[in-house]
């Protein structure tokens, strides 16, 4: 966007990002586009008249990259609010939790197998994620981190531990996402919700779930 707006110069800082939201958001889009182009590099493109599997992803990724660049450049020349710290830290640390979960559940099989617990590596991953969350979640980061942790805990425990335990633990972890949490109330509430979910999903909706842990 070349609307001729001159960035104010001569200040002590000199160069300043005027709309951080757009600037960083645009850069992330460019990164996503670059990643998509890289990820689809092996896919065949046009063959004669016909689109190959790689054609459409490349078209869309290229447009995304170009638009991301425009948004980012626009962020340099127009004013906007700064990016909130919570958003940056919360999302970055949340991504770390997800990475930890993936790593542990993929590479901990020897450990859990050694303990005689097959298919329990995801439970181990859930435990690790939970411990890390308790260690790093402070103040305003609680929201994103405990919601992500609660979800990952559910994902890790639903198969091996069954619906009852997975729901209960996950509800308690999620509840910790707010500073207002009251533990006694939360435990009772989690128990009540778990019973309700079990009745609703297993009896009323007839979905095939394990109730209890498998060993």
């Amino acid at each position: 966007m070349s609307d001729g707006i001159q960035a104010p110069s001569g200040r002590s800082g000199g160069f300043r990002i005027r709309n951080q939201q757009d600037f960083y958001g645009g850069l992330v889009l460019v990164a996503v586009a670059a990643f998509a182009l890289w990820a689809s590099r092996d896919l065949p493109g046009m063959r004669g008249f016909a689109f190959g599997p790689g054609t459409a992803p490349r078209i869309f990724a290229s447009i995304l990259g170009a638009l991301g660049l425009i948004v980012a450049v626009g962020g340099l020349v127009t004013d906007g609010p700064p990016v909130e710290r919570v958003a940056v830290r919360g999302t970055a640390l949340g991504a770390v939790l997800i990475a930890i979960f993936i790593l542990v559940s993929n590479y901990a099989t020897p450990i859990t197998a050694g303990l005689g617990l097959r298919q329990y590596e995801t439970v181990l991953a859930a435990i690790v994620v939970l411990l890390v969350t308790i260690a790093i979640a402070r103040g305003a980061d609680r929201g994103p981190l405990y919601v992500v942790a609660g979800t990952l805990v559910f994902a890790g425990t639903i198969r091996p531990l069954g619906l009852v335990l997975a729901s209960f633990i996950s509800i308690v972890v999620c509840a910790a996402a707010t500073v207002e949490v009251r533990w006694r109330e939360t435990i009772l509430w989690a128990a009540g919700l778990t019973i309700f979910c079990a009745l609703l999903f297993v009896y009323a909706l007839n979905l095939p779930f394990n109730f209890w842990p498998r060993f």
């Binding site: 559910f154 619906l163 919700l193």
Partner: peptide, 11 residues
């Protein structure tokens, strides 16, 4: 919100 989250997750 924990109730909403757990319904989402189970669903």
């Amino acid at each position: 919100f924990p109730a909403i989250l757990i319904f989402c997750n189970i669903g």
